[in-house]
Amino acid sequence: MRKAIGLLVNPIAGMGGAVGLSGTDGKLEEALRRGAVPRAAARAVEALSRLGGEEIHWYTAAAPMGEDVLAAAGIDRFTVLYRPASPTTAADTKAACRAFLDAGVDLILFCGGDGTARDVFDAVGRSVPILGIPAGVKMYSAVFAVNPAAAAELLRLAGEIPCRDSEVMDVDEEAYRSGRLAARLYGYACVPYIPERTQGGKQVFEEQDEERAKDAIAAFIAEIMLPDTLYIIGAGSTTARIMERLGLTPTLLGVDVVRNGEVLARNADEWTLFALLERYPRAKIIVSPIGAQGFVLGRGNQQISPAVLRRAGLSNLIVVATPGKLQATPVLYVDTGDPALDREVGETLLVVSGYRLGQRKRVVHAD
């Protein structure tokens, strides 16, 4: 059955991640100053290149908001309905989506992060299904595929698989950059759903037992830390507790670097991490999955890039999470932007869940 699909790409989505900005909204000039490079187009092409043989007519926006991506993926059956300003803005996203709606599309496929999801939802509400190709820094909304390959699979089956009501989250960017997660439910969108292909929304765990578990994990990690070893400590409240156990102040939503009890970098970007690894090659990386979503890498910690992971070695990756979080997280995901590296993670990961306690969790590879 021939489908009509609207394609929208936010060309600046995700540019703040690797440079440690915790988001790009309102920070494009600063991201560019720090050496950020676009990533949304490559993520979109990765998905679209799997759909060239499908019976789809695409409707899109001009230039970097969709037209260029379709051409790069080798797709020529498309109609440009909207021409954005330069640089593009949220108003362009909304206007393009309203044009798609007027054209009678069956679904809107967008590439971006939570801010893009909110703008798409603002324009179309529940009048048409939407689906996100993840390309932002943080993606707490449940409207995204787990990675570009999964987005292609979901789109291919759209109309044959059920849609579910999925949360669109409104995340306060300024609060996030200052180390505080302030998110509220913005609305429910209709999203094609296959288990382990469509991501869940983030959950926050604050029960008393969870706090004790964080303390136990921190005590164990502090006990096994090696001298003269670089520790790259990712975002999250569980990893923050490790820093606090060491008597250090954490960057709750950033990446810190510690060696011999001394902080070498706070809220480090990708280049800082790689430079420190060049100087101190003996290293460990400590991360915690996003609650309920299960993403270990690729959501909120893009500073820990494929280059950084390869330099440190995947064997030196330590995953920590409380039992409560793991109970609500049936599987784990990795989405570094390098599918070959993602596969090297393997089929399972051992997760430290207490003092000398661990659980082995299955890793899903959606390709």
Score class of each variant (00 low, 15 high):
D269H: 05
R266V: 03
A265M: 01
P250C: 06
D256R: 04
T239Q: 11
T239K: 11
T238A: 01
S237G: 12
I242R: 06
D269E: 11
E262S: 14
T239D: 10
G254R: 01
L277Q: 05
I233T: 06
I242T: 05
D228F: 09
N267K: 10
K284T: 04
F274W: 03
D228C: 10
L277N: 02
R245T: 10
I290V: 15
A240V: 05
D228M: 08
I285E: 03
G247E: 09
E278C: 09
A265H: 00
E262H: 14
A235P: 10
D269G: 15
T251R: 15
V257P: 08
M243A: 10
T239R: 08
Y280D: 09
G247F: 07
P227D: 08
D256M: 07
A235F: 01
I242V: 13
L276S: 07
W271Y: 12
G261K: 13
R241V: 05
T251I: 15
D269S: 06
L273R: 02
G247P: 06
T272G: 14
M243T: 07
T239E: 10
R245Q: 15
R279D: 07
G291M: 07
V258C: 08
A265Y: 02
P289A: 01
D269R: 05
D269M: 07
M243I: 08
E244Q: 14
V258L: 04
W271R: 14
V258H: 03
V257N: 09
L230R: 08
R241S: 11
E244V: 11
E278F: 04
R245M: 15
I242L: 12
Y280T: 04
V255R: 01
Y280I: 06
P281M: 11
N267T: 00
W271T: 14
R241H: 11
T251V: 15
E278R: 07
I285P: 02
T249R: 14
V255H: 03
I242G: 04
R245C: 13
T251Q: 13
S237F: 03
V287P: 00
N260Y: 12
T238H: 04
Y231D: 13
F274Q: 08
V263F: 04
G291Q: 02
P250D: 04
A275E: 15
D256L: 10
A265F: 02
E244H: 13
K284I: 05
I233Y: 04
E270L: 01
T229I: 08
